[in-house]
Amino acid sequence: MPSNTPTQKDIAEAARVSGSTVSRALRNDPTIPSETRERIMRVARDLGYRPNPFVNANMLNVRRPNRKHTKAILAYITPIPLNEYFAIVPQREISYNGACKRADELGFQVDPVPIKENGVYLSSRRCTEILLARGVQGIVFAMFENPYVRFHLDWDRFAVATHDFRMVQPRFSEAGSNHYLNTQKILRNLNHLRYKRIGLAIPARADRYTQGAFSAAFCLYRDTQPKVNQIARFTPSALKDWNRENFLSWYKKAKPDAIICISDDILSWLQDAGVSVPQDVGLASLAWEREKEPAGWSGIYQQHEMVGAAAVQLVVDQLMLNERGKPRYPKTILIDGEWVPGSTLCQQGL
């Protein structure tokens, strides 16, 4: 029985162009004028054309200029070389490994591409040249300290996603930790453990990086509690104000019985002041790390490997659908964290 599914040949006849032009237009090939691409895509939509993702996956390898590689290449862009990047924040390596594992499962290879040399960003033209020379069709941007960094690559040539940060301009699909839900999860566990006067102590910079998710979840919970248990946050805006003296001043005034934090500084400041954890005050980390486990921290593990994998999945999904460039409606995947109990909290509610 003949199929009624329209083909690229049908699109070519309806649009009065060649089959190769249709093929390239449906891949968003920038060598085809934008008006022609839009007209061909409009014809394809009108005919009800749907690309075959299995064919697309195979063609990704066929079209690569460098055939000696057995897998299509995804660039993993970092601001500095990987070894330096991992040394600053160890969990970044976990995200990278998660990205590599997922890429391998999907038949891709991840190539790290640092775009900063001697403290200076590569030019957009040079960066695009490097990516194209390597046969890159998909890009994962890892965490950048400054989300306001602007890139001007030839975006129409690539499928792009970010992880653990939101690129302000241009906006792409992103994968990250569900910081709002993770904060709520900590609060629920502290409530279950019978903590009443719960405080939040994080640098304002960390909160801004999550678009205020930490503070939003905390304030919503705090404002539903009895007035006697409502504690002001310790979230200094200036980094110079994030110090032992200011924190201890807040602690003595607020008198929390548990503190949600993100920095090891809090534990050392309390211990130096003779405050016992968890006997005098409990601590729960918004960024639990495996490296903290010997110290017995309680907190949220942000599932870094799953975040890296999700970013790769976003890029591969675009490639399968022949989508390139800046998306009209970027997608966001948020990964829920895992609660990890530890000795920085008293198990008084169990």
Rank of each mutant, 00 (worst) to 15 (best):
D317V: 04
A284H: 01
E93A: 11
V89S: 11
P79E: 10
P203E: 12
G274A: 08
L26K: 06
G176H: 06
E38P: 01
P51E: 13
A273D: 13
G176F: 00
V43A: 03
M306G: 04
T332E: 15
K185Y: 08
M41Y: 00
N97C: 04
N52A: 03
C346L: 15
G349E: 05
A12Q: 09
Y96K: 04
H152M: 09
A175K: 09
K240E: 14
G299M: 04
S343A: 13
E293M: 07
R166A: 10
L314N: 02
V312S: 09
A133G: 11
Q225L: 14
N243K: 02
M41T: 07
K255V: 12
T78S: 03
Y195P: 07
V43R: 06
R233P: 06
D264Q: 13
T162L: 01
S285F: 05
P81C: 11
L74F: 00
C261F: 07
S177D: 11
T224F: 05
A206Q: 12
G337D: 12
R150Q: 15
A87C: 00
P79V: 08
R290F: 13
N52D: 15
N322D: 14
A204V: 00
P203C: 15
A258F: 02
V168W: 01
P51Y: 10
I32E: 03
A44T: 00
E323S: 04
S34N: 06
A204N: 11
R194S: 14
L132V: 05
A311W: 02
A103H: 05
D29V: 10
R188L: 07
S23R: 05
F172P: 11
F158W: 00
W269N: 10
T7D: 11
N178R: 03
L270M: 14
D223K: 11
G342W: 00
G325C: 09
R64Y: 01
I259P: 05
P79M: 04
K326D: 05
N97D: 09
A206N: 09
R67D: 14
F151P: 03
I198H: 06
G135C: 14
L187M: 13
D317Y: 03
V315D: 03
D257N: 15
V340D: 08
S3P: 00
Y209P: 08
Q318R: 13
D272V: 11
Q279R: 11
Q302M: 07
R222P: 07
W288G: 08
V160D: 00
I77Y: 07
A72W: 01
D223P: 01
Y49M: 14
F144L: 05
R92M: 08
T162M: 04
V140T: 03
A99S: 08
E35R: 10
F144H: 00
E245P: 09
A216Y: 04
P226E: 02
D29E: 13
M167K: 09
E323R: 13
L220N: 13
S298I: 03
Y301I: 03
A99K: 02
S298Y: 00
F151N: 04
K196L: 12
I262H: 13
G274W: 01
